[in-house]
Design a protein around this nucleic acid. Sequence first.
DNA 1: TCATTAGTTCATAATTTACAGAACTAAAAT
DNA 2: ATTTTAGTTCTGTAAATTATGAACTAATGA
Lengths: 153, 153
Amino acid sequence: MILSEQQLSLIEEFGVYQENNGFQPAVARVMGLLLVSDRAELTFDEISEALSISKSATSNALNMLLNTGNIEYTTFPGDRKRYFRIKSSNWREFFLKRMEDLSYLNGLLKRALDVRKRDNPIYDAKLNDFISFMDYMQNRMPSLIEEWEKSRK
Amino acid sequence: MILSEQQLSLIEEFGVYQENNGFQPAVARVMGLLLVSDRAELTFDEISEALSISKSATSNALNMLLNTGNIEYTTFPGDRKRYFRIKSSNWREFFLKRMEDLSYLNGLLKRALDVRKRDNPIYDAKLNDFISFMDYMQNRMPSLIEEWEKSRK
DNA sequence: TCATTAGTTCATAATTTACAGAACTAAAAT
DNA sequence: ATTTTAGTTCTGTAAATTATGAACTAATGA
Protein backbone atom coordinates (compact mmCIF):
# COMPACT_ATOMS: atom_id res chain seq x y z
CA MET A 1 0.00 0.00 0.00
CA ILE A 2 1.30 3.45 -0.88
CA LEU A 3 0.63 6.29 1.52
CA SER A 4 1.28 9.92 0.65
CA GLU A 5 3.26 12.23 2.92
CA GLN A 6 -0.01 13.87 3.88
CA GLN A 7 -1.58 10.58 4.80
CA LEU A 8 1.42 9.52 6.86
CA SER A 9 1.54 12.73 8.84
CA LEU A 10 -2.20 12.73 9.38
CA ILE A 11 -1.95 9.19 10.77
CA GLU A 12 0.61 10.48 13.25
CA GLU A 13 -1.39 13.55 14.19
CA PHE A 14 -4.57 11.57 14.63
CA GLY A 15 -2.50 8.98 16.51
CA VAL A 16 -1.26 11.52 19.03
CA TYR A 17 -4.80 12.83 19.45
CA GLN A 18 -6.09 9.37 20.24
CA GLU A 19 -3.17 8.64 22.56
CA ASN A 20 -4.43 11.58 24.59
CA ASN A 21 -7.78 9.85 24.61
CA GLY A 22 -6.20 6.89 26.35
CA PHE A 23 -5.37 4.65 23.40
CA GLN A 24 -2.04 2.87 23.10
CA PRO A 25 0.22 4.35 20.44
CA ALA A 26 -0.04 1.41 18.06
CA VAL A 27 -3.80 1.19 18.54
CA ALA A 28 -4.16 4.88 17.80
CA ARG A 29 -2.07 4.50 14.60
CA VAL A 30 -4.25 1.65 13.38
CA MET A 31 -7.32 3.86 13.74
CA GLY A 32 -5.49 6.63 11.92
CA LEU A 33 -4.56 4.32 9.08
CA LEU A 34 -8.12 3.05 8.69
CA LEU A 35 -9.28 6.65 8.68
CA VAL A 36 -7.00 7.99 5.98
CA SER A 37 -6.24 5.03 3.70
CA ASP A 38 -7.59 5.12 0.17
CA ARG A 39 -9.23 1.78 0.64
CA ALA A 40 -11.71 1.71 3.51
CA GLU A 41 -11.04 -1.93 4.34
CA LEU A 42 -7.60 -3.30 5.08
CA THR A 43 -6.27 -6.73 6.02
CA PHE A 44 -4.19 -7.70 9.03
CA ASP A 45 -1.00 -7.88 6.99
CA GLU A 46 -1.63 -4.61 5.18
CA ILE A 47 -2.04 -2.85 8.51
CA SER A 48 1.00 -4.51 10.01
CA GLU A 49 3.17 -3.60 7.02
CA ALA A 50 1.87 -0.08 6.46
CA LEU A 51 2.58 0.86 10.07
CA SER A 52 5.71 -1.30 10.50
CA ILE A 53 4.37 -2.92 13.64
CA SER A 54 4.77 -6.56 14.63
CA LYS A 55 2.06 -9.17 14.20
CA SER A 56 1.53 -9.30 17.95
CA ALA A 57 1.08 -5.55 18.17
CA THR A 58 -1.28 -5.68 15.20
CA SER A 59 -3.28 -8.52 16.73
CA ASN A 60 -3.49 -6.71 20.05
CA ALA A 61 -4.52 -3.43 18.42
CA LEU A 62 -7.20 -4.95 16.23
CA ASN A 63 -8.73 -6.97 19.07
CA MET A 64 -8.65 -3.90 21.26
CA LEU A 65 -10.51 -1.87 18.67
CA LEU A 66 -12.97 -4.68 17.97
CA ASN A 67 -13.75 -5.01 21.69
CA THR A 68 -14.30 -1.30 22.14
CA GLY A 69 -16.53 -1.24 19.07
CA ASN A 70 -14.32 1.16 17.15
CA ILE A 71 -13.80 -1.11 14.18
CA GLU A 72 -15.47 -4.09 12.56
CA TYR A 73 -14.62 -6.47 9.74
CA THR A 74 -16.14 -8.25 6.79
CA THR A 75 -15.05 -11.37 5.01
CA PHE A 76 -15.47 -12.56 1.45
CA PRO A 77 -16.27 -16.08 0.25
CA GLY A 78 -13.16 -18.07 -0.58
CA ASP A 79 -10.92 -15.64 1.25
CA ARG A 80 -9.81 -16.38 4.77
CA LYS A 81 -8.62 -12.84 5.47
CA ARG A 82 -10.65 -10.39 7.48
CA TYR A 83 -11.12 -6.88 6.11
CA PHE A 84 -11.09 -4.31 8.89
CA ARG A 85 -12.75 -0.91 8.72
CA ILE A 86 -13.82 1.85 11.06
CA LYS A 87 -17.34 1.33 12.34
CA SER A 88 -19.36 3.93 10.53
CA SER A 89 -21.82 4.39 13.37
CA ASN A 90 -18.86 5.11 15.54
CA TRP A 91 -18.69 8.87 14.99
CA ARG A 92 -22.05 9.66 16.50
CA GLU A 93 -21.38 7.28 19.36
CA PHE A 94 -18.09 9.03 19.93
CA PHE A 95 -19.84 12.33 20.50
CA LEU A 96 -22.45 10.79 22.77
CA LYS A 97 -19.76 9.07 24.81
CA ARG A 98 -18.15 12.44 25.37
CA MET A 99 -21.41 13.82 26.63
CA GLU A 100 -21.89 10.82 28.93
CA ASP A 101 -18.42 11.39 30.26
CA LEU A 102 -19.35 14.96 31.11
CA SER A 103 -22.47 13.87 32.95
CA TYR A 104 -20.42 11.37 34.91
CA LEU A 105 -18.22 14.27 35.96
CA ASN A 106 -21.35 16.23 36.78
CA GLY A 107 -22.45 13.40 39.04
CA LEU A 108 -19.13 13.50 40.87
CA LEU A 109 -19.43 17.25 41.35
CA LYS A 110 -22.95 16.88 42.76
CA ARG A 111 -21.64 14.35 45.24
CA ALA A 112 -18.78 16.70 46.13
CA LEU A 113 -21.27 19.45 46.95
CA ASP A 114 -23.14 16.93 49.05
CA VAL A 115 -20.30 15.61 51.16
CA ARG A 116 -18.30 18.75 51.79
CA LYS A 117 -19.34 21.11 54.55
CA ARG A 118 -17.93 24.30 53.18
CA ASP A 119 -16.92 27.14 55.40
CA ASN A 120 -17.47 29.66 52.65
CA PRO A 121 -20.62 29.12 50.54
CA ILE A 122 -19.23 31.24 47.68
CA TYR A 123 -17.42 28.17 46.39
CA ASP A 124 -20.63 26.18 46.49
CA ALA A 125 -22.31 28.76 44.30
CA LYS A 126 -19.62 28.52 41.62
CA LEU A 127 -19.89 24.77 41.55
CA ASN A 128 -23.67 24.89 41.47
CA ASP A 129 -23.40 27.16 38.46
CA PHE A 130 -21.40 24.64 36.55
CA ILE A 131 -23.66 21.77 37.56
CA SER A 132 -26.73 23.63 36.39
CA PHE A 133 -24.97 24.52 33.15
CA MET A 134 -24.12 20.89 32.52
CA ASP A 135 -27.65 19.82 33.35
CA TYR A 136 -28.97 22.39 30.92
CA MET A 137 -26.65 21.16 28.16
CA GLN A 138 -27.69 17.60 28.76
CA ASN A 139 -31.37 18.44 28.59
CA ARG A 140 -30.96 20.41 25.40
CA MET A 141 -28.90 17.73 23.65
CA PRO A 142 -31.73 15.55 22.29
CA SER A 143 -33.57 18.50 20.77
CA LEU A 144 -30.31 19.84 19.33
CA ILE A 145 -29.69 16.55 17.58
CA GLU A 146 -33.25 16.61 16.29
CA GLU A 147 -32.88 20.16 15.01
CA TRP A 148 -29.69 19.23 13.22
CA GLU A 149 -31.37 16.29 11.54
CA LYS A 150 -34.18 18.52 10.33
CA SER A 151 -31.82 21.26 9.18
CA ARG A 152 -30.02 18.99 6.76
CA LYS A 153 -32.97 17.57 4.88
CA MET B 1 -7.67 17.49 58.77
CA ILE B 2 -10.38 14.86 59.15
CA LEU B 3 -11.92 13.39 56.05
CA SER B 4 -15.02 11.22 56.09
CA GLU B 5 -15.19 7.86 54.33
CA GLN B 6 -17.35 9.51 51.67
CA GLN B 7 -14.85 12.26 51.11
CA LEU B 8 -11.97 9.79 50.87
CA SER B 9 -13.69 7.57 48.33
CA LEU B 10 -14.87 10.56 46.30
CA ILE B 11 -11.27 11.78 46.14
CA GLU B 12 -10.29 8.41 44.72
CA GLU B 13 -13.15 8.29 42.24
CA PHE B 14 -12.52 11.82 41.06
CA GLY B 15 -8.83 10.96 40.98
CA VAL B 16 -9.35 8.04 38.64
CA TYR B 17 -11.56 10.20 36.45
CA GLN B 18 -8.87 12.83 36.15
CA GLU B 19 -6.18 10.22 35.55
CA ASN B 20 -8.18 9.28 32.48
CA ASN B 21 -8.03 12.91 31.52
CA GLY B 22 -4.26 12.71 31.45
CA PHE B 23 -3.38 13.87 34.95
CA GLN B 24 -0.80 12.09 37.07
CA PRO B 25 -2.32 10.08 39.94
CA ALA B 26 -1.04 12.35 42.70
CA VAL B 27 -2.02 15.47 40.76
CA ALA B 28 -5.51 14.08 40.28
CA ARG B 29 -5.82 13.33 44.03
CA VAL B 30 -4.80 16.86 44.93
CA MET B 31 -7.60 18.21 42.73
CA GLY B 32 -9.98 15.75 44.34
CA LEU B 33 -8.97 16.83 47.82
CA LEU B 34 -9.41 20.51 47.02
CA LEU B 35 -12.81 19.67 45.56
CA VAL B 36 -14.23 17.77 48.53
CA SER B 37 -12.49 19.18 51.60
CA ASP B 38 -14.59 21.13 54.08
CA ARG B 39 -12.25 24.05 53.86
CA ALA B 40 -11.88 25.44 50.36
CA GLU B 41 -8.27 26.52 50.89
CA LEU B 42 -5.54 24.16 52.04
CA THR B 43 -1.84 24.56 52.70
CA PHE B 44 1.03 22.58 51.23
CA ASP B 45 1.48 20.52 54.39
CA GLU B 46 -2.22 19.86 54.82
CA ILE B 47 -2.38 18.50 51.29
CA SER B 48 0.76 16.43 51.71
CA GLU B 49 -0.48 14.93 54.96
CA ALA B 50 -4.10 14.38 53.98
CA LEU B 51 -3.05 12.41 50.90
CA SER B 52 0.07 10.81 52.42
CA ILE B 53 2.27 11.96 49.56
CA SER B 54 5.83 13.20 49.86
CA LYS B 55 6.75 16.86 49.80
CA SER B 56 8.32 16.49 46.38
CA ALA B 57 5.19 14.89 44.97
CA THR B 58 3.12 17.64 46.56
CA SER B 59 5.38 20.34 45.16
CA ASN B 60 5.26 18.80 41.72
CA ALA B 61 1.47 18.39 41.80
CA LEU B 62 0.79 21.92 42.98
CA ASN B 63 3.11 23.51 40.43
CA MET B 64 1.56 21.36 37.72
CA LEU B 65 -1.91 22.52 38.66
CA LEU B 66 -0.81 26.14 38.99
CA ASN B 67 0.77 26.04 35.52
CA THR B 68 -2.29 24.54 33.91
CA GLY B 69 -4.49 27.09 35.61
CA ASN B 70 -6.49 24.53 37.56
CA ILE B 71 -5.70 25.96 40.98
CA GLU B 72 -4.56 29.25 42.47
CA TYR B 73 -3.51 30.43 45.90
CA THR B 74 -3.88 33.31 48.31
CA THR B 75 -1.68 34.40 51.12
CA PHE B 76 -2.36 36.22 54.37
CA PRO B 77 -0.24 38.93 56.00
CA GLY B 78 2.18 37.57 58.55
CA ASP B 79 1.79 34.02 57.27
CA ARG B 80 4.30 32.57 54.87
CA LYS B 81 2.11 29.67 53.83
CA ARG B 82 0.20 29.64 50.58
CA TYR B 83 -3.44 28.62 50.63
CA PHE B 84 -4.37 26.63 47.54
CA ARG B 85 -7.86 26.34 46.08
CA ILE B 86 -9.49 25.26 42.88
CA LYS B 87 -9.80 28.11 40.42
CA SER B 88 -13.47 28.93 40.42
CA SER B 89 -13.54 30.05 36.80
CA ASN B 90 -12.11 26.70 35.92
CA TRP B 91 -15.36 24.76 35.49
CA ARG B 92 -16.64 26.76 32.57
CA GLU B 93 -13.23 26.68 30.95
CA PHE B 94 -13.19 22.95 31.38
CA PHE B 95 -16.34 22.59 29.30
CA LEU B 96 -15.09 24.96 26.63
CA LYS B 97 -11.80 23.08 26.40
CA ARG B 98 -13.75 19.91 25.73
CA MET B 99 -15.59 21.61 22.91
CA GLU B 100 -12.33 22.92 21.46
CA ASP B 101 -10.95 19.44 21.61
CA LEU B 102 -13.89 18.19 19.57
CA SER B 103 -13.38 20.84 16.95
CA TYR B 104 -9.72 19.91 16.72
CA LEU B 105 -10.86 16.36 16.02
CA ASN B 106 -13.29 17.74 13.49
CA GLY B 107 -10.42 19.48 11.74
CA LEU B 108 -8.50 16.20 11.57
CA LEU B 109 -11.52 14.45 10.08
CA LYS B 110 -11.92 17.15 7.45
CA ARG B 111 -8.29 16.68 6.47
CA ALA B 112 -8.81 12.92 6.33
CA LEU B 113 -11.67 13.35 3.89
CA ASP B 114 -9.41 15.60 1.89
CA VAL B 115 -6.37 13.36 1.59
CA ARG B 116 -7.96 9.99 1.14
CA LYS B 117 -9.15 8.90 -2.28
CA ARG B 118 -11.85 6.51 -1.29
CA ASP B 119 -12.91 3.66 -3.48
CA ASN B 120 -16.35 3.60 -1.91
CA PRO B 121 -17.96 7.02 -1.33
CA ILE B 122 -20.40 5.59 1.25
CA TYR B 123 -17.73 5.99 3.90
CA ASP B 124 -17.23 9.60 2.92
CA ALA B 125 -20.92 10.27 3.46
CA LYS B 126 -20.84 8.89 7.01
CA LEU B 127 -17.85 10.99 7.88
CA ASN B 128 -19.38 14.07 6.28
CA ASP B 129 -22.42 13.54 8.47
CA PHE B 130 -20.37 13.65 11.60
CA ILE B 131 -18.42 16.67 10.45
CA SER B 132 -21.57 18.59 9.69
CA PHE B 133 -23.02 17.56 13.05
CA MET B 134 -19.95 18.83 14.86
CA ASP B 135 -20.02 22.06 12.89
CA TYR B 136 -23.65 22.50 13.83
CA MET B 137 -22.93 21.92 17.52
CA GLN B 138 -20.10 24.40 17.44
CA ASN B 139 -22.25 27.07 15.84
CA ARG B 140 -25.06 26.56 18.31
CA MET B 141 -22.82 26.62 21.37
CA PRO B 142 -22.61 30.40 21.93
CA SER B 143 -26.37 30.84 21.72
CA LEU B 144 -26.90 27.86 24.00
CA ILE B 145 -24.69 29.41 26.64
CA GLU B 146 -26.58 32.67 26.25
CA GLU B 147 -29.92 30.90 26.63
CA TRP B 148 -28.74 29.18 29.76
CA GLU B 149 -27.63 32.46 31.27
CA LYS B 150 -31.03 33.99 30.56
CA SER B 151 -32.91 30.96 31.86
CA ARG B 152 -31.39 31.19 35.31
CA LYS B 153 -32.10 34.83 36.11
C1' DT C 1 23.82 34.26 64.46
C1' DC C 2 21.45 30.12 64.38
C1' DA C 3 17.17 27.65 63.84
C1' DT C 4 12.88 27.03 61.65
C1' DT C 5 9.67 27.26 57.97
C1' DA C 6 8.05 26.52 53.37
C1' DG C 7 8.95 24.78 50.00
C1' DT C 8 12.30 23.09 45.48
C1' DT C 9 15.48 20.17 43.10
C1' DC C 10 17.95 16.01 42.16
C1' DA C 11 19.17 11.21 41.95
C1' DT C 12 17.18 7.12 42.11
C1' DA C 13 13.90 3.31 42.86
C1' DA C 14 9.54 1.04 41.71
C1' DT C 15 6.04 0.33 38.64
C1' DT C 16 3.73 0.34 34.46
C1' DT C 17 3.37 0.34 29.42
C1' DA C 18 4.00 -1.05 25.08
C1' DC C 19 6.04 -3.57 21.89
C1' DA C 20 9.06 -7.22 19.50
C1' DG C 21 10.11 -11.94 18.53
C1' DA C 22 9.34 -16.62 18.73
C1' DA C 23 6.56 -20.35 19.41
C1' DC C 24 2.13 -21.84 18.84
C1' DT C 25 -2.82 -23.11 16.81
C1' DA C 26 -6.62 -24.10 13.87
C1' DA C 27 -8.41 -24.11 9.45
C1' DA C 28 -7.73 -24.46 4.57
C1' DA C 29 -4.98 -25.67 0.47
C1' DT C 30 -2.06 -28.74 -2.01
C1' DA D 1 -0.47 -35.98 4.95
C1' DT D 2 1.90 -31.86 5.24
C1' DT D 3 2.29 -27.16 4.10
C1' DT D 4 0.57 -22.66 4.06
C1' DT D 5 -2.25 -19.05 5.80
C1' DA D 6 -4.04 -16.04 9.20
C1' DG D 7 -3.62 -14.95 12.93
C1' DT D 8 -2.91 -15.63 18.69
C1' DT D 9 -0.38 -16.14 22.86
C1' DC D 10 3.65 -16.00 25.73
C1' DT D 11 7.98 -14.27 27.39
C1' DG D 12 11.27 -10.82 27.79
C1' DT D 13 12.62 -6.21 27.80
C1' DA D 14 13.39 -1.24 26.70
C1' DA D 15 11.43 2.89 27.72
C1' DA D 16 8.47 5.89 30.07
C1' DT D 17 6.04 7.23 34.22
C1' DT D 18 5.53 8.32 38.87
C1' DA D 19 6.84 8.87 43.25
C1' DT D 20 10.32 8.83 47.19
C1' DG D 21 13.89 10.67 50.25
C1' DA D 22 17.65 13.47 50.98
C1' DA D 23 19.95 17.49 50.20
C1' DC D 24 19.31 22.05 49.17
C1' DT D 25 17.59 27.21 49.20
C1' DA D 26 15.68 31.45 50.47
C1' DA D 27 13.15 33.95 53.68
C1' DT D 28 11.63 34.72 58.40
C1' DG D 29 12.03 34.42 63.45
C1' DA D 30 14.28 34.00 67.96
